[in-house]
Computed example of a mutant assay.
Amino acid sequence: MAFKRSKKHEQSRRAHAITRTITAVAVAFTFNSTPSVGTALAKTLTQAIVVKAVFRKCEAGNRTTCVVDGDTLWIRGEKIRVADIDTPEVSEPKCASELALGRRATDRLIELVNQAPFQFHAWPARDKDRYGRKLRVLIRNGKSLGNILVSEGLARTWSGRRQPWC
């Protein structure tokens, strides 16, 4: 049995899609137009917290300060989603190439967060994603760590929704 959505629901869904696209384009332009975080976005990023810790890959059980995958980590017991990027999945990949690239992104994020202290800032659009992860941008010396992963081909700039990697 097919479920028919109302016209109002479809209009609302389209409006949200347009808003997500505009936000993604603005963020992509800001993060990719210069090697450092743009001044306008930097002013909207609030709640800067400096993180200095030793990160490792997360294992079952203890998830206090560790990296889950290329865009998710735990910091001081809080699950964080790197808000400005999307990386391939490692827990439920759709193909072997996604798993391989996801593992490389995970390893590289571990390297980046362990190189030196960094700040994480609240995402201006909203505080948490639908899974309850806090949305944050990781910044060191004015540069997004997520943008480094994008420049190395290990991630995509977040577009407002996941795109297939296979």
Rank of each mutant, 00 (worst) to 15 (best):
N62R: 11
L138K: 03
Y131C: 05
R76C: 01
V67P: 05
R130S: 11
A83D: 09
K128E: 12
C66W: 07
R14W: 02
A28P: 01
E78D: 14
N141E: 13
L138Y: 02
L145D: 03
I75P: 02
K143M: 09
I139N: 05
K4I: 11
A122V: 10
G38K: 07
T19K: 14
A28D: 14
L138G: 03
A17I: 06
V25E: 13
I22Q: 14
R103T: 13
P164S: 13
W74P: 02
K134C: 06
A155C: 09
Q47F: 01
A24H: 01
S97H: 03
T23W: 15
S12N: 13
C66N: 02
C58L: 04
R14G: 04
N62D: 15
K52S: 15
D129R: 00
E111W: 10
D129G: 08
T34F: 05
A60K: 10
I22Y: 03
G160Y: 10
E78A: 15
K134G: 06
L73I: 11
L112W: 07
E152V: 05
W74D: 06
S159H: 07
E111T: 14
R13G: 00
I139R: 09
P88D: 08
I75Y: 07
E89M: 07
T65M: 04
T44F: 05
T19D: 12
S159E: 07
G38Q: 05
F31R: 11
T157Y: 09
D107F: 07
T46Y: 11
A83H: 09
P35R: 08
D129W: 02
I85A: 02
S91N: 10
V51A: 10
H16P: 00
T64H: 10
A53K: 15
T72G: 09
R140G: 05
L41V: 08
R20V: 02
E78Y: 12
F118V: 00
L154P: 03
K128I: 12
T21A: 14
L101M: 12
K134A: 13
V50R: 15
T19A: 15
F55R: 03
R103H: 10
F31N: 14
V54W: 06
Q115H: 06
C58N: 09
L138I: 06
W74G: 01
Q119Y: 09
S144K: 01
A15Q: 14
R140F: 04
I139H: 00
A42T: 11
E78W: 13
E10K: 12
P93E: 03
F29R: 11
Q11E: 15
V67Y: 04
M1I: 08
K134V: 07
